[in-house]
Amino acid sequence: MTKSAGSRRHLPSSPFNKPAAAAPPIEQYQVGDRVSHDQFGLGRVLAVEGDNAAVLVDFSGRQGRILSPYSKLAKL
């Protein structure tokens, strides 16, 4: 006879009992901010679209539109 998963007791120190962590807040950028991108390198924010939904960044003459949540972009 097998027990169902609902009746099984879990240890309080188990890493599987941890509640899901809240997502970190999305970085807010402004025109003129200096940034670093994992792939494109250093740049400067030229424009912010919508409510920080995307940013237009100049990477030494090459422009890129980076979408939120900016996982590869960091403010300097």
Score class of each variant (00 low, 15 high):
residue 52 N to L: 08
residue 32 G to R: 08
residue 34 R to W: 04
residue 19 P to W: 05
residue 6 G to I: 13
residue 60 S to P: 01
residue 25 P to C: 03
residue 68 S to A: 14
residue 35 V to F: 03
residue 27 E to Q: 15
residue 41 G to A: 05
residue 34 R to T: 03
residue 59 F to M: 03
residue 70 Y to L: 02
residue 54 A to D: 01
residue 65 R to T: 05
residue 7 S to R: 10
residue 76 L to A: 10
residue 38 D to P: 02
residue 10 H to G: 04
residue 16 F to D: 10
residue 45 V to W: 00
residue 1 M to D: 14
residue 60 S to V: 03
residue 66 I to H: 04
residue 30 Q to V: 12
residue 65 R to D: 09
residue 35 V to G: 02
residue 31 V to Y: 06
residue 27 E to P: 05
residue 63 Q to C: 13
residue 12 P to R: 07
residue 48 V to G: 04
residue 40 F to G: 01
residue 16 F to P: 03
residue 18 K to F: 12
residue 15 P to C: 03
residue 18 K to P: 07
residue 17 N to Y: 09
residue 72 K to Y: 09
residue 57 V to Q: 12
residue 63 Q to I: 13
residue 39 Q to G: 01
residue 3 K to N: 11
residue 6 G to H: 15
residue 35 V to N: 04
residue 34 R to S: 09
residue 9 R to K: 15
residue 14 S to W: 12
residue 3 K to P: 06
residue 18 K to H: 14
residue 46 L to Y: 00
residue 13 S to A: 10
residue 76 L to M: 07
residue 76 L to C: 02
residue 21 A to K: 15
residue 16 F to W: 10
residue 29 Y to D: 02
residue 50 G to C: 05
residue 52 N to S: 05
residue 38 D to G: 07
residue 38 D to C: 09
residue 7 S to K: 03
residue 70 Y to F: 14
residue 4 S to V: 15
residue 12 P to H: 00
residue 42 L to Q: 09
residue 28 Q to T: 04
residue 46 L to W: 00
residue 75 K to R: 14
residue 29 Y to L: 10
residue 48 V to L: 11
residue 70 Y to M: 00
residue 14 S to M: 11
residue 68 S to F: 13
residue 70 Y to A: 11
residue 7 S to V: 14
residue 5 A to N: 12
residue 7 S to E: 14
residue 24 P to K: 09
residue 31 V to A: 07
residue 73 L to A: 05
residue 1 M to V: 11
residue 8 R to K: 15
residue 36 S to D: 08
residue 57 V to P: 08
residue 49 E to M: 08
residue 15 P to W: 05
